[in-house]
């Protein structure tokens, strides 16, 4: 367990307490659902930090450039804009996303190989 996750858990607990107080006061369900959902999300983040938040001690190989990541960003923008402009842009966006993610995967594999060698 990592102590780095403790402040996050404390924060999630604060949110839970505040959401609980709201639940006693508020009759409308919408604000309660939003607030509890947000607190639940923060518990997930806090648990991740508690369990997987150990400090990294192994060697990292950091690439200086990542074109595929830029491609992924542009693909997401095209996908979002495609919802407005039309299917043709969505399809181009999907293609760009696939190429971008494949490129990121390739980079990660190369990074792993370099770290282990």
């Amino acid at each position: 367990m990592s102590r780095a996750g403790v402040p996050l858990a404390v924060w999630a607990a604060f949110l839970t307490v505040l959401a609980t107080v709201l639940a006693f006061w508020e009759h409308d369900n919408v604000p309660k659902v939003i607030f509890f959902a947000s607190a639940a999300l923060m518990w997930v983040v806090a648990l991740y930090a508690l369990v997987r938040g150990r400090r990294l001690v192994r060697t990292r190989v950091t690439p200086d450039l990542s074109y595929p990541a830029v491609f992924v960003a542009l693909a997401i923008a095209m996908l979002a804009l495609g919802a407005l402009v039309g299917l043709w842009l969505v399809l181009i966006g999907v293609g760009a996303l696939v190429i971008g993610l494949a490129g990121v995967g390739r980079e990660l594999a190369a990074q792993r190989r370099a770290a282990s060698s």
Binding site: R55, L56, V57, R58, T59, R60, V61, T62, P63, D64, L65, S66, Y67, A69, V70, A114
Partner: peptide, 21 residues
């Protein structure tokens, strides 16, 4: 944690796609 890096890329390409925080 130790790190191995490539030299920093200069120019516009380095500006657009750099992963340096």
């Amino acid at each position: 944690m130790s790190v191995a890096t490539l030299p920093r890329t200069a120019g516009l390409v380095g500006w657009i796609a750099s992963t340096d925080h």
